[in-house]
C-alpha cells in the first residue's frame, strides 16, 4: 500500500482550550508517530463505605 498525503495551507484564527490533563498533548507541528495509553481504575472495591480509616498507608 502506498499512502499519499497532501497537506495544504493551514491558517487557524484562534484555539480555545479549557484544560489539557493526564499526559495529554497539544501539538502544533508535524510528527511521525504518537502512542497514547491510559489506565483508569475505579473498581467496586474502590468504593469504601465505613468509618474514618486511613486507606493503605505508606509503610
Amino acid at each position: 500500500m502506498i499512502f499519499n498525503v497532501v497537506n495544504k495551507d493551514i491558517c487557524v484564527g484562534s484555539i480555545k482550550i479549557r484544560a489539557i490533563a493526564s499526559s495529554s498533548l497539544l501539538l502544533v507541528g508535524d510528527t511521525k508517530t504518537i502512542q497514547l495509553a491510559s489506565a483508569f481504575d475505579t473498581p467496586p472495591e474502590s468504593l469504601i463505605v465505613g468509618p474514618l480509616v486511613s486507606v493503605a498507608p505508606k509503610g
Binding site: 511521525k32 504518537i34 468504593l47
Partner: peptide, 15 residues
Amino acid sequence: STQDVRMQAKIKNIR
C-alpha cells in the same frame, strides 16, 4: 515538530 511521542497516564480513583 517532533518525531516520536509516547504518553501514558495511570489513575487510581477511590471514593
